[in-house]
Amino acid sequence: MVRTVHTAVQLQAPLVCGTLVKSLFDISLQFIADNIGHVDSLAGFPEQMAVKLFSAAEERHRFIDPHTAHRALHTVFCEACGELVLKSMCLRNRYLLISERMDEIRMFQSLESLDLNGCRLGNNHDIFKYITSEALSRYGQQIILKGIGANCLSDAGLQRLTAPVRLMKKGLENLQISLVNLSLKGFFRNKINLIRSETPLKVFTHSDCKTEGWAEQMEGKSLFERH
């Protein structure tokens, strides 16, 4: 639901013959993008319109403005559009970015795939709490944690990562982990019930990992620069 905002829009005649005047649709889209913090919800909004509004809001830096960022990105778009905003995220070798942007990362609660290889996070980093949070599990999706090698994870770290599901039956019901250090194979043999795949697994390569979703266009302005 979009709040009713009364405003006056004055259209001026073109100064030069042949100059195109903005359509009423473009004017309305830009006005809503400028005032995205006053939008209650986009639930039921057509996808084609929502992606145009997302692009317009991004162009106006509404996702990095501290006064509008959380409401615009999380409340307005992520809650209504889910995985369309961000389905997968590649943060390979981006330790500083993860530490600086953890609050923004938490906003994406429909994430299905995450690559954290080479980030040197250690056992207690907040991003692992995010991965196993009930906020994610309420959507009931499966998250694939790709590439957690070179993160200084010990057996204790893996136990902590999987504890919500193993011990308390909370957090994500389905958690897939690939590219784990071979030194942790004892943990998986003793703590995790492994199920043999019915079909051969495809060889994993980092080229398969990428940031995917509308938020990918936030290149160079916030989280999601291309690699």
Rank of each mutant, 00 (worst) to 15 (best):
Q10H: 10
I98V: 14
N190R: 10
S207Y: 04
I27V: 13
E112L: 10
R3K: 11
I148N: 02
Q30E: 15
A8E: 13
Q109M: 09
K221A: 13
V39Q: 04
G157D: 08
A150S: 12
V76Y: 04
P46W: 03
C17A: 15
Q10K: 11
T4I: 13
L153T: 01
R120I: 05
R189L: 15
I177S: 03
L223K: 00
K221Y: 06
Q10T: 15
E47C: 07
L223S: 01
S133W: 04
A33Q: 03
C17P: 05
K202F: 06
I105H: 07
D103V: 14
H70R: 14
L91E: 04
A33G: 07
H206K: 12
L42P: 02
G37C: 10
V51F: 00
L29D: 01
E225S: 11
K87G: 01
T205P: 10
R160T: 07
R226W: 05
L11C: 07
C152E: 12
I177H: 02
G186T: 03
A163H: 09
D103Y: 05
K221V: 15
I127W: 05
S28D: 11
E219G: 06
E112Q: 11
Q12V: 15
K52G: 06
S88D: 09
L91K: 02
L73N: 02
Q159A: 15
A8P: 04
L184Q: 11
G140A: 06
N190S: 04
F54S: 11
E104M: 14
N193R: 15
T4S: 12
L29E: 00
E219K: 10
V76K: 02
A8D: 13
V165I: 13
L91P: 00
P66C: 03
H74N: 14
S110C: 13
I144K: 08
L184C: 11
L172V: 14
N124C: 12
A156T: 11
S99H: 09
G140L: 09
T68C: 10
L29R: 01
I177A: 03
S178F: 02
V51E: 13
Q217S: 15
C119H: 00
S88M: 09
G44R: 01
E173H: 14
L184K: 05
D40G: 04
Q10W: 05
S197L: 03
G171V: 05
K210G: 10
G186K: 14
R166V: 15
Y95L: 10
V2P: 02
H74P: 09
K185P: 01
E198F: 02
R189F: 11
K221Q: 13
D103T: 14
L29A: 03
A150Y: 06
C209F: 01
A43S: 10
L172A: 08
K87A: 09
M1L: 13
A13V: 14
E216P: 05
I64S: 08
